[in-house]
Design a protein around this nucleic acid. Structure first.
Lengths: 188, 188
DNA sequence: TCCGCTTTTTGATTTAAGTCAAAAGAAAGA
DNA sequence: TCTTTCTTTTGACTTAAATCAAAAAGCGGA
């Protein structure tokens, strides 16, 4: 999904505004396994996934990778707190498939926020939308059995479920990969 | 915490702007156990907790109450999706202590968003901040033992932990209240 | 095409936390 | 103050899911 279309679904920018906004983003192709943000470093960009999939994850106290969120096509992503507070990132941001990504720095973004009232609104709407999504995830995890959590995954990310390795999904859902494998088997 | 102070920490409104904004809120005292939002009804207000504590919860498939979030002093609260989409609420919003609450309707709020660029920014900052908070909660729940989840509660809401019934905290943390009781005992 | 590496599956065993039931303690109301 | 009701604790037992270990399947590169 193109960024322009996506923005238009949320706020009705004029042609000129849209053009100006888009001109502040940089487009690049990123290949599988590439790490866009390292843990401990400051995340300088906000990204938009035009094509592909990414995830952010962190290492728990046992050194195990825990997937926090997946980002599919048409989604903004970043190490949010790091980006906005310019603090060291708790997360890695990793590309899972060869992807096309648009990026913008905080300076450029703030400039757009200052320039356009509508841009600020876009930011608010995006943050609100993401917030409700994340709240849904909490519900899906808290007090739900492993089986129910997988059902949530299927309904929330039907596409992603079959495009990324099982182990990553297991860590996203908070279960071991053996458990997820057994659940999948029963589903057939 | 007064709303005016709180707003000022995020965006530097002028005196007049602040006054105008505040005039759109309605202040009321609400007593313990009162339900501000019912499941199934549309949540028409955004609330700010000046004094007191509230929580939102939902009923799971067994009819058990699951606490989603606690809202302490100086926090905005609502049934977010219901409020913004004007859709039936999935959650109840309940007052846990006699409280002082400010409220504003969506119409009034949208009016302020249209009138002030800065107001839109405030909305964005609030949503972003809440988003990072909620993301932290996911981490604390996913892949953490019951004991670690309680440690998270203590660090995140040191005040609330001892002001609300144990059973509510247990449901917030995704564990049975017996388990939480046992954890607390070990802590002494 | 074959080899080596990664991912997934399967089986056996352990364990953290849930459930059920009842007692103890605290708070609220008459 | 004494009931009554709500909340928390305790104990015994069960269970879902983790862990450990190893086999099987899938994939990418030479």
């Amino acid at each position: 999904m193109k960024l322009a279309e996506f923005l238009h679904t949320l706020v009705d920018f004029s042609e000129e505004e849209l053009e100006d906004i888009l001109s502040h983003f940089e487009r690049k192709e990123v290949s599988k396994n590439e790490i866009l943000v390292e843990q401990g470093k400051i995340c300088r960009n906000l990204y938009f996934v035009e094509k592909g999939i990414a995830r952010n994850y962190y290492l728990n106290s046992d050194g195990k990778e825990i997937t926090q969120l997946f980002f599919g096509e048409g989604r903004f992503m970043s190490s949010l707190e790091s980006f906005f507070q310019e603090s060291p990132s708790t997360y890695y941001l990793e590309i899972l498939e060869d992807s096309v990504i648009l990026s913008i720095t905080k300076e450029q973004l703030d400039l757009l926020f200052d320039r356009y009232h509508k841009m600020e609104r876009l930011g608010r709407l995006l943050a609100t939308e993401m917030l409700t999504k994340v709240v849904h995830k909490i519900n899906a995890i808290q007090f739900q059995s492993a089986r129910e959590r997988y059902d949530f995954m299927l309904s929330e990310y039907p596409d992603i479920t079959y495009r990324v390795p099982l182990g990553l999904i297991a860590s996203y859902l908070g279960m071991s990969q053996e458990t997820l494998s057994r659940i999948r088997k029963k589903k057939l």
